[in-house]
Simulated assay, not measured.
Amino acid sequence: MNEFGATLRAWRDRMSPAVVGLPVSRNRRTKGLRREELAELSGISVDYLVRLEQGRFTTPSEQVAAALARALQLSAAERDHLYRLAGLNAPGAAEITDHIPPSVQRVVRRLDHAAVAVFAADWQLIWWNRGWAALCGDPSRVPPHLRNFARDTFLPGPAQLSAYGVTSLVAGAPQAALVADLRRATGRFPGSRRLTALIDELTTGSETFARLWVDGVVGAHRTDQKIIDHPLAGPVAVDCDVLTDGDADLKIVIMSAEPDSDDETKLRLAVLSGADAVPGT
């Protein structure tokens, strides 16, 4: 019996398209999500999803399992069950998780007026909305394992999360706050192998990070002000606020402009110019 595929199919059938912002017409025959819809939300191919559901492939990676759990808005218990069916260790308190609780997904999907992204405790990008992709450039062009804000900050390379120029108006402070936040994460997830690997990579590759890390400051990265050099809207000044969610220590990053300002107008223009941008999963 292919319990993984059967369970995946059952959860797909129960998922209302309206919950994930898909249009629902009277002529729709499928009660839940279509395969192509779940595949797009999860960032995998339809053929791969078919093989999973039919039991022709039963060992997806942790990344695929996490993406499916997010797209299906599984509870923590359901997510853990999906991992076990796939032969994976369910995310525990010792390891950082990429799971976004359904309640958080509902909230961030309603923030259409702003550019919004969700990062894991190690600043790995795990979700973004159309506004974020329109304002900063589509992160899907960056390989998934490189979508890390801390790595972008201290080890800049050709594959950056932001496709456009970004300038912080608070010189030096965002870097120090980011390092303090990562140190805080090591206390929350002392057994996280991926966090340890990230810290080792940053310490070895960046003198600035190594110097700030030695300072031993512990804190949370809460706010910043940035100017994004958008190719159509021009320079857009935004407030960047970081909200933290629960035990998973998710970072919900919201970029917005001052109401009734020129920057708000340019932000709207940037978002409209990227109306076809695909939200991340």
Results as ranks from 00 to 15, higher is better:
Ser16Ile: 04
Cys136Phe: 15
Arg109Cys: 15
Ser16Asn: 07
Ser206Val: 06
Pro231Arg: 05
Gly216Tyr: 05
Arg130Asn: 14
Ala277Phe: 04
Pro235His: 07
Thr59Leu: 12
Asp181Thr: 07
Asp47Glu: 10
Arg106Trp: 12
Thr97Trp: 02
Phe57Thr: 12
Arg194Thr: 01
Asn129Ser: 06
Arg147His: 09
Leu169Gly: 04
Val166Ile: 06
Glu36Tyr: 09
Val170Gln: 13
Phe209Met: 00
Asn27His: 14
Ala76Pro: 03
His230Lys: 08
Thr204Lys: 11
Thr58Gln: 07
Ser162Trp: 03
Thr208His: 12
Glu37Thr: 01
Asp276Met: 04
Ser256Val: 10
Val24Met: 00
Glu62His: 00
Pro101Gln: 06
Trp123Met: 14
Leu22Cys: 01
Ala185Gly: 09
Glu264Phe: 00
Asp215Ala: 10
Pro235Met: 03
Leu82Arg: 02
Thr208Met: 14
Glu95Lys: 08
Ile228Phe: 02
Glu53Arg: 04
Ala114Ser: 15
Ala18Arg: 13
Arg222Leu: 14
Thr204Tyr: 09
Pro156Leu: 07
Asp229Ile: 03
Arg194Asn: 02
Leu232Arg: 12
Thr204Ile: 12
Ser45Tyr: 00
Leu202Arg: 09
Leu243His: 06
Cys136Gln: 15
Phe154Pro: 05
Gln124Met: 10
Val19Lys: 09
Ala233Asn: 03
Trp123Arg: 14
Asn148Tyr: 01
Arg14Val: 08
Arg79Ile: 00
Leu212Cys: 10
Gly5Met: 08
Leu74Tyr: 02
Thr244Ser: 12
Ser42Cys: 00
Asp245Glu: 11
Arg14Thr: 09
Arg211Thr: 14
Asp276Val: 04
Asp239His: 11
Ile199Val: 15
Pro17Trp: 01
Ala93Lys: 09
Ala134Val: 13
Asp122His: 05
Leu178Ser: 10
Gly187Met: 15
Phe149Arg: 13
Ala6Gly: 10
Ala177Val: 07
Ala185Glu: 01
Ile100Cys: 12
Gly172Ile: 06
Asp122Met: 10
Asp122Ile: 08
Ser256Pro: 07
Arg193Leu: 15
Arg34His: 03
His113Glu: 15
Gln175Val: 08
